[in-house]
Nucleic acid binder design. Structure first.
Lengths: 200, 200
DNA sequence: CGCTCGTTTGAGAGGACTCAAGGTAGGTGG
DNA sequence: CCACCTACCTTGAGTCCTCTCAAACGAGCG
């Protein structure tokens, strides 16, 4: 299996990238801090999310092996609008901003790749915005579930690999609301709940 | 005054770009349709927004002279997740996808410019996500207002150039809620309302 | 003046959230 | 093998607060 990498590992190292280990729960960056590095995941998972004082959070994305995150603030030299936290023990490559720009200049194909990644990320964010505008929880959940299988054309209902709490964090709802609405949707046969596992 | 252009007018024309007029209210593209063109504003304003069945809408952005919009779906060849509508009478340049890619290949500086634009757009979208997660209207409004003056460091309160309805559309609230909350904030001296005009 | 568009106010209802508590499953250790 | 712990799921009752609906006001304009 070929592992897709945002920027080739060897290039990152050659240009001064350094691997750093993060413990589970450790923050890679926090809201309002200034960016200094480009981050790319070698191992583990990183969650990027917004949070508010109520302890509620909104997950922007979960990034794994090969993916990079937090580039826009770095490029624009603006403070991070969100948090990045290690979901599991992680190994990340850290690379200084100047070196990143050197790579993008020396390797047009990397530049192009990042460009496409940005387009995809924007498309995903747009889908999320569409979720947020829905006033009814059920509509939010339907849109979220549908967005999960964007690439998958299958007749069968597939297991949704998230806990109720994670779904709540993706949709901006509360856990209890997610549970109650999913139960309703199950009765209407819009989803299946078998042994507490959710299928859509 | 130098007008900033995403891609130089002359290049667009040379590569087959065509100017097209849109009447006020006319749609440039609609949700779920497939993209065929790159659009750049020559004159007028275009609003990009999501909408739901309730007639509520969420404004993603308002684009004017020199700005382009709707690129991610075009690049990814995916259906538009939102609507683009002429707010005023407009003139736009339409350019086929292949020709856009030719330009980006032939003019690395245009490519780089679009790259930076993407970074900015993503940053703005991230700020919006942060707005959406706030459960209280007042927090949403504060974040929105703060985001308006991101570049402007001024002591004085500045006129907010949006109607209550537009603010509602940006924050996902209803007009009445916006009005009531702004009134509260005015009492708390967080904003000024002078002669119905809003200052922040 | 009469139209349109934006703003404002009030009353009422719905529904998601809050809070509290209990259930279930999987993993760990004695 | 059982007791315990932790994480996740579930349920119920009650409150709060935004939304809904309806109506009216003000400004600008032909």
């Amino acid at each position: 299996m070929v592992v897709w990498m945002q920027i080739d590992y060897n290039i990152l190292i050659a240009y001064g990238g350094i691997a750093k280990k993060f413990e589970k729960g450790e923050y890679v960056f926090v809201e309002d801090s200034m960016p200094h590095f480009y981050y790319q995941v070698i191992e583990g998972q990183v969650k990027v999310y917004y949070s508010n004082s109520d302890g509620r959070e909104l997950t922007q994305g979960i990034f794994s092996r090969g993916q990079s995150f937090g580039e826009p603030p770095l490029i624009l030299n603006k403070p991070y609008p969100n948090f990045a936290q290690a979901l599991t023990q992680c190994v990340l490559i850290k690379l200084g901003k100047d070196n990143l720009f050197k790579i993008l200049k020396d390797f047009p194909e990397m530049s192009h790749r990042l460009f496409l990644t940005f387009a995809e990320r924007m498309y995903d964010m747009a889908t999320f915005s569409a979720i947020m505008i829905k006033p009814r929880p059920q509509e939010k959940l339907e849109l979220f579930l549908r967005s999960l299988r964007k690439e998958i054309y299958s007749e069968k209902r597939l297991l949704v690999p998230f806990t109720r709490q994670q779904i709540a964090n993706f949709t901006g709802l509360r856990v209890e609301t997610v549970i109650r609405e999913l139960k309703k949707m199950s009765k209407e046969n819009k989803v299946s709940i078998i042994n507490k596992k959710l299928y859509y």
